[in-house]
């Protein structure tokens, strides 16, 4: 008898990440590297807003797809693991950015480019997911 490994919600989530979110990351970085680091574009008006939106699409899309997964997942244990991991990601992001903000204010450390904060969130969330799976194995 063939057994399922994941819930159907998880397969849908993986497909959405693989086919919609992952391809958005190179697009976003091509805009960043070519537009701002290579050609030194100084965009204004609607084009500037459009570029900003496209650059943030991967993380916005990921949050949307992850929310959809949490809504569709019927396995409450899997859902609990994901929610816990996301809370770790949010907590770490909030803690680090708040502390860095204080450092900028009081210790004049270099200004943090907040567009990179998404990788802190995703990284901590990913590590927390692995740690949680190991804890509850």
């Amino acid at each position: 008898m063939e057994r399922r490994i994941y819930s159907s919600a998880k397969y849908r989530y993986e497909d959405r990440v693989l086919f919609f979110i992952v391809p958005l990351f190179p697009v976003s970085f091509i805009i960043d590297i070519l537009g701002f680091h290579y050609y030194h574009l100084h965009l204004t008006g609607i084009l500037a807003y459009l570029c900003a939106f496209v650059f943030s699409l991967p993380i916005l899309g990921f949050i949307f797809v992850f929310g959809l997964y949490l809504a569709e997942e019927t396995d409450e244990y899997e859902r609990a693991l994901c929610v816990q991991s996301m809370l770790w990601g949010i907590g770490a992001t909030l803690a680090v950015t708040t502390f860095w903000g204080s450092l900028e204010k009081f210790a004049q450390v270099p200004r943090l480019d907040v567009t990179w904060v998404q990788f802190l969130f995703l990284g901590v969330m990913g590590i927390a997911l692995l740690v949680n799976r190991w804890r509850y194995r």
């Binding site: 994941y6 019927t74 396995d75 409450e76 244990y77 899997e78 799976r133 194995r137």
Partner: peptide
């Protein structure tokens, strides 16, 4: 797990008392 329509990991976590079911 199949009878409950959950993952095997869920059954294991409930069985070992690491996760309380709803």
């Amino acid at each position: 797990a199949e009878r409950l329509d959950v993952s095997r990991q869920s059954v294991n976590a409930i069985e070992t008392g690491k996760f309380d079911p709803s």
